[in-house]
Design a protein around this nucleic acid. Structure first.
Lengths: 335, 335
DNA sequence: CTGAAAGCGCTAACAT
DNA sequence: ATGTTAGCGCTTTCAG
């Protein structure tokens, strides 16, 4: 069943059917529209987008780019994170009649190949691992790129990310409001644009409430489970010179809690901690972990919004900054 | 840059270039092949698959089908699970020059629409939620379907799933080998094909080692975190008439451990437990959770193998049953 | 408002 | 071993 068959049965030309389907309703009379739609419905006709793309160049295909790494190498945070992100993006694109091609990419060249192969209409980079490669892609300014979680400053692309500054500001302020003054920041942030934003939020919250920041309050740990575990194990009654920790990931927080508990230092009685990401496992830890929620689905939705703005050349702000939320559980104690 | 341009520059016909690209090397002389390949390389020419599909009908596009549900409704197990599964499938398809279209599907009709729209070459159903809908899809026997984790018995489709029977057999036997005799099975399995297999594995392991099964050894709980929590809370010194639990999900195990510990009943001293799925969070629980590993990546790889067999009409067994593995951690105590 | 002609980039089928 | 013809299903362009 093709456009031609529909046209024949309706006694009109292919162009008329095409116009009805494309929603060019100004070019067709009401009666014709109804007649054509009836026949389309009768046969459950669905236009072939391969053919449409070939002649019109626009495929309605969006490339979702993930890094090509061994699955095991992906920090487990990405598991939950990516599923939710991809699901929300797919849903939002679907509602706008776009389709999702998923591809793990190792070198920038592959992006270009995908464009030539499938006439891609745009791409969303799901993780901020592509900052350096994007500018190597030919004509990247005109390729409708959206970067997620990236603070790179690349001309012509759009961004969707959570407000990392505000997230750690919130966390820090919450600790202060619970009576904490000796609050440390648990991540090496130098050289990492995202972590620098988070550090800045922590720093400025201290400042706002008249607490001096000194360099020893920043602990240069790697913010994953192992890094947290190592740091946690270094905590004992002698080194416990703080009452609260601003962490930059839930898994890191879990590592810290586990490591410290090996020395009999327990959260929340001996120290309070706030994570980042609001993973569902936060409900399963002991104590349940207070965390900063990233609103992942909203981030995906906004990424699609940015993309459609680019595709439709709607002149808009090219950064979506998603508000974070504090999710209170049991890892912060009022002192 | 098109086939035509390459043909022109080489001084040959389009068909010759096409044959070189498709690997029809019997139809072209060695010199011509080299000449053509040189020009292709010179211009980084990539053939347009929209055009190829239009004339050849084969798109090299594979549909990955997930259920369309609210993200929040997806049990968190699927998060980690799906990411790893999708990553392994994408990788394997990519290596065979296939491309991945991702789509969440609400009703069977949508599958048919995707086929008409994009000339899909086959589909993999990532979760066993489609058993009832598949047979409603027109011509489903010839559509190259692979179902993951399904025990449905549908004509003409292929399957990739872990050996659930063997998984719980392994778990039960491991407990027995650690001296346990009073072992309960923690899931309502009736009416669920997959859970029935697991129960059978548990049952047969008991039998093999001369332990009688009595109906009270099967606890009809819902095998997720909440169900586990509820059951765990029901355990106290009076009701603790077993020494070990075969659970059918890691999250359920975590719920049980948490619920029981609220009553002062601790794993592994008061009872042993083995989970199912081997989630990475098993490393973070206290005690670390012994579990049955599903080899998710292998499952994805085998799913692709099944699919390619169908596409290439290679006559093979249409079920891939993935061996499970026991991952020992700290939740089983020798008694 | 409606239609005819031409062509998107490729390949199947049939030549030579 | 190589080339020619026709056509995949749709839209663009230009005419009426």
């Amino acid at each position: 069943m093709t456009l031609k068959d529909i046209a024949l049965e309706c006694g009109v030309s292919m162009m008329t059917v095409s116009n009805v389907i494309s929603g060019n309703h100004k070019k067709v009379s009401k009666q014709t529209i109804e007649k054509v739609n009836a026949v389309i419905k009768k046969y459950d006709f669905v236009p072939n987008l391969m053919a449409r793309t070939l002649s019109s160049k626009s495929s309605h295909l969006i490339l979702l780019v993930t890094p090509y790494v061994k699955t095991q190498e992906l920090d487990s945070i990405y598991n939950q994170y990516l599923t939710e992100l991809i699901a929300s993006i797919e849903r939002e694109l679907m509602e706008n009649s776009y389709y999702v091609l998923l591809r793990s990419v190792y070198e920038p060249k592959e992006i270009e190949v995908m464009y030539k192969t499938w006439n891609i209409d745009g791409a969303i980079f799901l993780l901020p691992f592509f900052n350096e490669t994007i500018e190597q892609i030919p004509d990247y300014q005109n390729k409708n790129f959206v970067l997620i979680d990236s603070y790179a400053d690349i001309k012509g692309v759009a961004y969707s990310r959570c407000d990392d500054y505000q997230g750690c500001f919130l966390a820090t302020e919450h600790l202060i409001q619970n009576g904490h003054k000796k609050i440390i920041f648990a991540a090496e942030h130098e050289g990492n644009l995202l972590l620098e934003k988070r550090f800045r939020g922590y720093h400025d919250a201290l400042k706002k409430h008249g607490i001096d920041f000194t360099p020893d309050m920043c602990r240069p740990i790697v913010p994953n489970y192992e890094g947290g575990l190592e740091f946690g194990r270094s905590i004992n009654r002698d080194t416990l010179n703080f009452t609260a920790i601003v962490s930059t990931s839930d898994l890191c927080s879990m590592g810290i809690m586990r490591g410290a508990s090996e020395n009999g230092i327990k959260c929340p009685n001996d120290f309070s901690i706030i994570g980042f990401d609001n993973l569902s496992i936060d409900e399963f830890t002991v104590p349940k972990l207070t965390s900063i929620d990233q609103q992942i689905s909203l981030k995906g939705k906004k990424a699609v919004e940015q993309l459609l703005n680019k595709i439709n050349k709607t002149e808009k702000e090219n950064v979506a900054s998603i508000e974070t939320k504090l999710i209170e559980r049991e890892s912060v104690k009022k002192i």
